[in-house]
Simulated assay, not measured.
Amino acid sequence: MKTTKINRQKIYEVIAEQIKQQIIDGDLKPGDRLPTGKELCEMYGVGRSTVREALSALEIMGLIETRQGEGSTVKTWNPEIMALPNFQDFLISEETVLELMEARKSLEISISRMAAIKRTEEDLNKLEDNLKYMELNLSNPNESKKTDMLFHKLLAQSTQNSIMVHLIEAISDQMDKAMEEIRRITFGSPSLSRKILKEHRAIYQAVVEQNTALAQQKMLDHLGHFEGEMGEYYKSKKELKEMEKRGKF
């Protein structure tokens, strides 16, 4: 297996992208087993949590399958699956962004319920690692934002439903583009980042307990937080435009 040595500062996406490209190029074929986590750590010169996140990202893309005690194996994959829906042309107004948020909320509530029912111990370990990593990076806006997005993708993976995974992947990526400024403000504040971490922990605990009703409610509370921020953001933009029209700026 070919690798390129990277330094510790590189994030897990670099490793995932390298392995993904080898799968696409045919260097790694369906049924091939990846090196163990320890071997990958040595090959890439990174820690276990970084490798674990890289493997999680590849699972979310549907490229590998990881089973506890058996390692990770390359799956048979369809190139068309990699082409997720693109909502970019629709993200042109406040109304369409809010509609996308509404769709995401319905999807995530369903995901939280399914995850509470179907999650495995391996899923819980990945979610727990994600929470620990987020706590360590509360003062790092970029890492906090990425860890926040990964939490929701890992939760979708816990449903054991590949369609859910691809849907949340598509919607989350587009929401991130649409809410770039809001996310910059949110994750630029350690106190707001701590609030998000607390909400994630509440969702995680409900999933651990397999409490479907509580998992759905905690997800609803969490997304309600972002809806409130979106409302304030668009309100302030409208007020600024009105002031500009009146010549106050």
Rank of each mutant, 00 (worst) to 15 (best):
W77Q: 08
M43C: 07
G37V: 02
Y133N: 02
K118I: 06
K145M: 13
I81S: 15
L55A: 01
K105C: 07
G62A: 00
R67E: 15
Y44Q: 00
A83E: 15
M43E: 13
V46I: 01
E94L: 03
N125Q: 12
T73Y: 13
L58T: 12
L58E: 06
D89A: 13
G47W: 04
E102H: 15
P141L: 05
Q68H: 15
G37A: 08
E99S: 12
T50C: 06
Q68M: 14
E94R: 14
I111H: 12
Y44A: 00
K75D: 04
M61W: 12
S106K: 14
S56G: 14
G69Q: 07
A54H: 05
I64Y: 07
N125D: 15
P79C: 03
S112E: 02
L55I: 00
S144V: 12
M43G: 07
E99A: 11
E39V: 08
E59Q: 10
S93N: 04
N137D: 01
V46E: 02
I92D: 08
I81H: 14
G69D: 07
G37M: 05
R33D: 00
C41Y: 03
E122F: 13
L138T: 10
L55V: 04
L34Y: 00
G45A: 00
W77N: 02
E102Y: 15
L34G: 01
W77E: 04
K75V: 07
E53D: 11
E59D: 01
A115D: 00
S93E: 05
E135R: 08
K145D: 09
P35K: 01
E108K: 09
P85C: 06
S49Y: 10
T120L: 04
E122S: 14
E102T: 15
P141Y: 00
N125M: 13
P85S: 04
E135Y: 02
L91C: 02
R52S: 13
E121I: 10
L63W: 09
D123H: 10
M114L: 14
P79T: 07
T96V: 14
I92R: 10
I64M: 11
E59C: 03
M101G: 09
K105D: 12
P79N: 03
I64C: 03
G37W: 00
E121H: 09
D89Y: 09
K126Q: 10
S56T: 10
E53H: 07
E94M: 06
E94H: 10
R48A: 07
R48W: 11
N86L: 09
M82E: 12
M114W: 12
L124N: 04
W77V: 11
C41Q: 12
S144G: 02
C41R: 08
L40G: 01
V97G: 07
N137V: 01
T120F: 03
V97D: 00
T73C: 14
M43N: 13
E135D: 03
P79F: 07
K126E: 14
E122Q: 14
R52V: 03
R48F: 13
L55P: 08
A115M: 03
L131F: 06
L40C: 03
E102D: 14
L124W: 11
T66Y: 13
I117H: 15
E53S: 11
E102A: 15
E128S: 09
M134F: 09
M61K: 15
K145N: 08
I109L: 13
K126A: 03
N137H: 05
N130A: 05
M61F: 07
P85M: 11
E39L: 05
E108I: 06
L84N: 04
P141I: 08
A116K: 06
I64N: 09
